[in-house]
């Protein structure tokens, strides 16, 4: 047995531990962030990165069926995770979910960083239609 094949399981263990750290950070952010935008920031990046790392760790089995399926899952996750995050963010902006922290950066046409203003949506809808060119 050569040196690479003896070192490969240890590399896989290290990748698994690092990936679990990233997934833990992501789920901690999902549980503790105050806001849908910040929760999405934690859950959409760190958890997907951890899952991709765990699938990379399964490359050391050197089984062609496992590696092909793992590559397919990685491609599917990396293609679909930004799209689903964008769908959730789009839904949050359209439903005018408020930002609940100080010092926010609001680039949407709605005034989402103002805490209590009941009728901010009217001028925001007009600005959104202008932005979309309708």
């Amino acid at each position: 047995m050569d040196q690479a094949s003896t070192a490969a399981p240890w590399i896989a263990d290290a990748i698994v531990v690092i990936a679990l750290f990233f997934m833990t950070v992501g789920v901690f952010g999902l549980a503790t962030m105050p806001d849908i935008y910040l929760k999405m920031h934690a859950a959409g990046k760190a958890v997907v990165l951890g899952a991709v790392g765990l699938m990379i760790a399964s490359f050391v089995t050197r089984d062609t069926a496992v590696i092909a399926r793992a590559v397919l899952i990685i491609c599917a996750l990396l293609l679909t995770a930004p799209v689903s995050s964008h769908a959730i963010a789009n839904a949050a902006v359209r439903r005018k979910d408020r930002m609940r922290t100080d010092s926010t950066l609001n680039e949407s046409p709605f005034e989402l960083d103002k805490p209590d203003s009941a009728h901010v949506g009217d001028s925001g809808d007009a600005r959104l239609r202008t932005l979309l060119g309708e």
């Binding site: 997934m23 999902l30 929760k39 859950a43 899952i73 959730i88 839904a91 439903r95 979910d97």
Partner: peptide
């Protein structure tokens, strides 16, 4: 919030995959 539930369900599916 309903959207937080949608986001948590998405993360749950990712945990099942893992």
């Amino acid at each position: 919030s309903g959207l937080v539930r949608v986001l948590a369900l998405d993360t749950m599916a990712l945990m099942f995959i893992t």
